[in-house]
Amino acid sequence: MDTLKDKKTKLRITDLSKNYDGKCALEHVSFDVFQGEFLSILGPSGCGKTTLLRILIGLLEASSGTVALNGKDITNAPPAERSMGIVFQNYALFENMTVLGNVEYALKIRKETRATARQKAKEMLALLGMSEYENKKPGDLSGGQQQRVAIARTLVLHPEIILFDEPMSALDVDTRITLRREIKSLQAQFDTTMIYITHDQEEAFAMADRIMIMNNAHLVQIDTPDAIVEHPADDYVRRFVLENLQAKADSIRRFVRG
């Protein structure tokens, strides 16, 4: 995305740290996320990316530092008042409800009437190609379908930002590639800012406007994929990038051979 500089700042993270029982899970992390951006947070397990995500959405309290949404400090705001949604790796659907029930549940609890809640939920499911599964239970769906329901459940509330916590780790390659495309097109359609955690470099490079690389509780580099490939910040990132290029080359080879 060449026009990033013109974008306005959606989320500003300033000097964020988190200590667990004396150990540092996150150390002095600062960065901005722009309106409508797709930001991938990339790093090995234990690097602090999930901690960061949980602080952003308010499930975890930061030890120090601030989070601001649209210029407003939300560091201590409860999760529901941040206008953010989250999609987990293991879907976390309500197993006892139907697909439709999952999506309309949060709407029904708000002031929506039953009819409008249902209509909005149906529209959202149609958008994700899930209409024919409306009355199924999550247990009867494939992983990819369940993830679509989880996304619909979040998206139906029109959050300003959606956070994804390794949403595709449990899915097979074909499903991943299809879902990638769908998520990107949903993002364009709703102009939603997305923060997407993954340890899969290929995925990060394929989807993200910018990539943030984390290691050992630190932010190592945040930039566009091209910039990271051309100017890796240090040896760690360089190794990371080379591996990714290798993986890409492999997948192209696979694609060519069919």
Partner: peptide, 19 residues
């Protein structure tokens, strides 16, 4: 055995614990 993130989802969707 029920998904560990249900409460977290509830919090972000503004669905209370009792509900």
């Amino acid at each position: 055995k029920i998904n560990e993130n249900i409460e977290a989802v509830g919090q972000t969707l503004r669905i209370g614990r009792l509900r």
